[in-house]
Design a protein around this nucleic acid. Structure first.
Lengths: 119, 119
DNA sequence: TTTCTACCTGGAGCGCGCTCCAGGTCAAGC
DNA sequence: GCTTGACCTGGAGCGCGCTCCAGGTAGAAA
């Protein structure tokens, strides 16, 4: 299990150092290791979580809900059903979001086309 | 030119009354009419603007940029080129946003599929 | 040995986009 | 005449998600 320095974890995950610290502070990310000098050491598993968080954030999930997901995961294997349900509900919202985005994008293109007709 | 009461404009545009007032306050929406008693009267043209604002907001344009667009429009016909360019740049960002959303949605579905394999 | 860099903590601050509130006005309905 | 309800204004407040800062430490480089 390789260990990553904070700067490396930030680079790989796309989150800032401050955001990584913030996520730990609010309990989203937990159990992050420390060197004897107190510095964070991120594992591949931590990076896996960060990849998931990036996915969920990019798709608009509020942090509070990501916390609920993380808590369920920490609670053990008996929560897989709830975790799956949470992700499915989220996926449905994302689908709606994609439809809306597409619709409004089409309007935007129409508007641009209109400007094109002006010369 | 029909006139609409604030509540009707809110209903049709999907913005709250407070948001309509806010947009006027910051100069995004300007020249909204008033009755003799000082109440707002929205025209079809105002609603057209609100429809555009909804499109731009739904696609993630910051309010400051919508203000710039509105100012250009108020400045007259000689700004159509700038307005078009602004929308084109925005459309490009939206395309990128759609690609990201699709990619992360795919990851999300993979994650859900993984839960499905667990039983 | 001194300096430099990367990191630490707790806590304050910020930018955005609203949202809410107090106190008031007007017009309509009872 | 009185109440009700939709609206008005100026200004304060809020929720979110970070982001920044002060003051400090450990280890590496010069």
């Amino acid at each position: 299990m390789t260990g990553y320095a904070p700067s490396e974890a930030a680079r790989r995950s796309g989150f800032s150092l401050d955001t990584l610290r913030y996520y730990e502070r609010i309990g989203l990310l937990s159990g992050v290791g420390r060197t004897s000098a107190g510095r964070r050491v991120f594992t591949d598993e931590d990076l896996g979580w960060l990849t998931l968080f990036r996915c969920l954030r990019d798709t608009g999930m509020p942090i509070a809900e990501m916390c609920r997901y993380a808590e369920l995961a920490r609670a053990g294997d008996h929560t897989t059903g709830q975790r799956r349900a949470l992700l499915v509900r989220h996926a449905e919202r994302v689908e709606e979001q994609m439809r809306l985005l597409q619709r409004q994008y089409d309007h935007l293109r129409e508007k641009i086309d209109f400007y094109d007709t002006l010369g």
